[in-house]
Design a protein around this nucleic acid. Sequence first.
DNA 1: AATCGTGTTTCAAATAGTGAAACTGCCTTG
DNA 2: CAAGGCAGTTTCACTATTTGAAACACGATT
Lengths: 269, 269
Amino acid sequence: MAERQAGDGTVGKALEVLDMVAAFERPVRFSEVLEDSPYPKGTLYRLFQTLTNQGMLSYDPDRQTYGLGVRLVRLAHAAWQQSSLAPIARSYVEALSQSTGETVHLAQFDHAQVLYLDKRNALKPIEMYSQAGKVGPAYCTGVGKAMMAFLDEEEVARIISQQSFHRFTEHTLTSEDELRHDLADIRSKGFGMDREEHEPGIICIAAPILTPGGRVLGGLSVTSTTAQKSLADLEALAPQVQATAQNIAVEAQNWHFPDQATDTIRTGT
Amino acid sequence: MAERQAGDGTVGKALEVLDMVAAFERPVRFSEVLEDSPYPKGTLYRLFQTLTNQGMLSYDPDRQTYGLGVRLVRLAHAAWQQSSLAPIARSYVEALSQSTGETVHLAQFDHAQVLYLDKRNALKPIEMYSQAGKVGPAYCTGVGKAMMAFLDEEEVARIISQQSFHRFTEHTLTSEDELRHDLADIRSKGFGMDREEHEPGIICIAAPILTPGGRVLGGLSVTSTTAQKSLADLEALAPQVQATAQNIAVEAQNWHFPDQATDTIRTGT
DNA sequence: AATCGTGTTTCAAATAGTGAAACTGCCTTG
DNA sequence: CAAGGCAGTTTCACTATTTGAAACACGATT
């Protein structure tokens, strides 16, 4: 369910295959993917060949399995650097994490899911791809709801139509009605809360990152546990979270990439 | 130069476009890419539409620019986890960094370039800009040469044909002959050195990670500076580096992914 | 030796991609 | 203010690629 609509020709199909391989979360055999795929054997085979050729899939001849290819890692590095909010927001995320002493997340939408671009844990050290790149549901996370509240109705409808409304906890909003009610509330307040809706004991406050024109760039959240903070405690952080989101938005607006990238590539060996 | 050969139909072209966008290292306008592209305007335009639709490119309507899309970040996260050596090697890389007190890199080939999958910086951080997803030249990096030395002649030829042999320093190997000579030496010794071939003052020792069958899985290197260590000092680490590479290879061979991935996705909000 | 399950190749029919050129709308210029 | 230029978008006849059923290989069972 919640499949990205194909129909973008061959390219769409190829990317769908990548998603299918990714969904297994381990190297897969050709036939495993074939079972889940709507394409005939020959067609899928050729797609695999093409993608492997292109470095988007990697083939392990010993085990006869396919995995996602390293080319993706290179592209993602470039994506993270160039087109997302992450590099711009980094110092702000860091500062917010320091001053609150809690975990801070930066996220954007990927299709109908929340995709985490960065995470800062006040106490623990940083890891790279282990956290950036994770996805979560839109309807029961703070950032998901905060961003949704400020999207066009058209997009909101598209996203909502692809939510599972699975009940993770007793507080999960499990219907479009409940969600829309919360979104309206978030829209008027300017920030949203996750009241143990995704995981028991985990609460958070989140604000959208908006352009001056009101377009959603991303979302920012401060997460804590019920053991450490109450909902009211978190709500008291609202001005701080919103101010940080605002600062990131301004920075993003002002940021101009150098006319000519002149960085010397300095890599290790 | 060193372009990934197209010819894989539409999918190949679409991916080539992604590479072109990535190459700019900043958001680009449609026409900028058009200039560099061999495709007519209409065709390129349709590719952009498709890729944007699919979340592989993102469009900023305010600035009318395209960047690489967040979907790549999600896919790369999956790629890093599932198909590369990185998760398996992580603890070994860490340990090697600890025991040597130097920076350790883990890399694989992406097409004809060295792609860094992981990096562990010891306590004394070296002034160096590399991390997961970065790429470097194959002919003048320790890991690049160490891996190349153990590839099939066919692949070596392909890779060599795409090297620029740009002279980064006075020690850079700038011809196929010099490189092949060094590769032969590496093959006999089982490890290779970077003797300030890429950056002045930066030296390293590297070993390939090989399957029992002799297939190249990746490369591992320990990097230092001439200020801290001599080439002889590094060479003394050869047994340790090779042993670590061997351990990673064994681990990779033994590793079986769980029959059914049952991880509950626990993300923040 | 026969069977099964993978993976690979083939080929006419169907589909999707191509690219020259025309169009739109905005921004600059005379 | 009109004319021209530029960036982006759309169109459409032509072509090349993709499709998918089916047959083929080949190693691993039985």
